[in-house]
């Protein structure tokens, strides 16, 4: 395996330091929200992880399209990395949301469009991983994976809309607020600082992890090639 490039080494340290600062900002520095109390602090990581998760899935869809056009296995490696990162961060997003919802909505879970959409996206891409496990030929695996990544993603807005037609109580803190939402609040400037810093931190952290995952993917491809050479 090639040694880590300098930028990646720097990114490792930068994301570590940023994570420490972001944690400090979110847990100690940001003011306590008047109504919800300390549990609101989960919001800083909740939104940031959701954002990185979404970027991971979007990257996978983009890589899927690129793979189908170019037939270059490089895109398959990137797509898989995007999905694994997306799965992990979306999972953290769902769990942190649940922790927040227990005191605020008085339940761990509710069948709100955003909650269900996030979960169904998680299930789509878990299915993607299972699909890949069942295919040995790397080219076919890449092709089917790319198609499924795209098909699965197209269904996500439909899921959201179909439940939206029912109702929603999930708060929209950034952007316009829905009067029916429960647990919404206005951010003070300090909260905004902590929020945007956390968003930035997790973006950098996500990119770093993605880079590492792509490098592992390249190594896996090499191992697979050597195996094929040995067998032939």
């Amino acid at each position: 395996m090639k040694p880590q490039p300098l930028i990646l080494k720097i990114l490792n340290w930068v994301s570590g330091i940023l994570l420490v600062i972001a944690t400090y900002l979110a847990i100690i520095w940001a003011p306590t929200e008047a109504v919800m109390g300390d549990v609101q602090r989960v919001f800083y990581f909740h939104v940031a992880t959701g954002w990185v998760g979404m970027i991971g899935f979007l990257l996978a869809v983009f890589s899927g399209i690129m793979y189908l056009i170019k037939s270059d296995l490089k895109w398959d490696t990137i797509g898989l990395a995007g999905i694994e990162i997306g799965l992990i961060f979306s999972f953290i997003n769902i769990v942190t949301g649940s922790i927040w919802a227990r005191p605020i909505w008085n339940t761990w879970w509710t069948w709100d469009p955003r909650l269900v959409t996030a979960t169904i996206m998680e299930l789509v891409y878990l299915a993607y991983l299972m699909l890949r496990q069942g295919i040995d030929d790397p080219i076919r695996r890449a092709r089917f994976g790319a198609i499924y990544a795209i098909l699965g993603f197209v269904s996500v807005p439909f899921s959201f809309l179909s439940i939206r037609i029912w109702r929603t109580i999930h708060p929209v803190v950034v952007g316009s607020g829905d009067p029916g939402a429960e647990g919404t609040f206005d951010m003070t400037p300090d909260m905004q600082t902590a929020f945007f810093f956390s968003l930035f931190t997790f973006t950098v952290f996500g990119i770093t992890l993605l880079w590492h995952r792509i490098r592992i993917g390249q190594l896996q491809d090499k191992v697979e090639q050597k195996k094929l050479e040995l067998m032939s």
Partner: peptide
Amino acid sequence: RTGNILLPILQFPIILP
């Protein structure tokens, strides 16, 4: 390789809406 058992796993999340 996994064959048939995979179909509902792949299909149900997509057809949920």
